[in-house]
Design a protein around this nucleic acid. Structure first.
Lengths: 156, 156
DNA sequence: CCCGGCAATGTTATGTTGTATCTTTGGCGA
DNA sequence: TCGCCAAAGATACAACATAACATTGCCGGG
């Protein structure tokens, strides 16, 4: 089921990488080999990956040791540019499938298998933003995640 | 402004400690000196405290070194018994002002000063739960937090 | 051409958060 | 008294994150 209320360009594989590159360059940032490698590594995971997971994947792909802090720098950049999201309750990161589209998003994370699905529901996130605003908070950045058990794990 | 839709018994000081003790014992758990010390330490903070912060506060209060893992055990117990909440986006814990009352709660955390306000809005959290349920997730535990700037920090 | 500046990345070290494992203590009932 | 068990202590380590400084390579002004 699609939870979004409008049409997205959902990318995958090369198209996703291309969309990410375009987005980042439009931000005035460089699309370097290292950044491409980090993005590919991140996108290759089917669930949120820690910075260290990504560092290991990049190291393997490059045949050399890549330090965690380089990966952190790039992941932070990606999060800032909407190429990736941080899953706060998992201390992990996940590639954004539609980097061109700005959303507060909601993650559903299975405590059993780690699978994470991403939904956009602007009315929910808007409500959270509104609650924050009415409490005097500015520049709100909602963090909406749900821990639970996914359908697959529930059915053994 | 009160965001709750019903009346709470909001506790503080000794009354809060007493409410916490009652709640925990009704769960069939013991209210030990150590647990009381951890709860008092946690409640004495005016913003979310890391387990290590709490360990340090307890150590000072007891005049002896208390190890972090003991504090973690007790904080986990508290979270399970609704005496405390974990603030996922801050890797920290905060005492629950009304341990008798079960809510999905929403935290607003100031990125500048760390002040955290806690609101209950069952319609928002209900919407998040409903979204999770319709995606096939069971036993949902919403994590709803907002990072931003509080009114005080906004006005310099 | 070369050299000064700058962004990106590398290197190393360290700080912070969270668990695992095993031991010790103390209460309590058989 | 003995054996059990929950609680807490001690120690070690794993996992996550950042700090500080060095190196590389590109690019524009002289």
């Amino acid at each position: 089921m699609r939870m979004t209320s409008h049409d997205h360009q959902l990318h995958e594989g090369d198209a996703l990488t291309a969309a990410a590159r375009d987005r980042l360059t439009r931000e005035g940032e460089q699309w370097t080999e290292m950044r491409a490698a980090v993005f590919d590594a991140l996108a290759s995971f089917d669930k949120p990956a820690s910075a260290y997971d990504v560092a290991e994947a990049v190291s393997k792909a490059q045949g050399r040791r890549v330090a965690a802090n380089s990966v952190y720098r790039i992941l932070d950049l990606f999060v800032g540019a909407n190429l990736a999201r941080r899953v706060e309750s998992a201390n992990a990161y996940i590639a954004n499938q539609h980097p061109d589209c700005l959303h507060d998003c909601i993650f559903l994370i299975c405590d059993t298998c780690g699978q994470t699905v991403h939904i956009d529901d602007d009315s929910l996130s808007g409500g959270v933003r509104a609650a924050a605003k009415s409490a005097g908070f500015t520049a709100p950045r909602p963090v909406i995640e749900v821990r639970g058990t996914c359908g697959d794990c529930e059915n053994h």
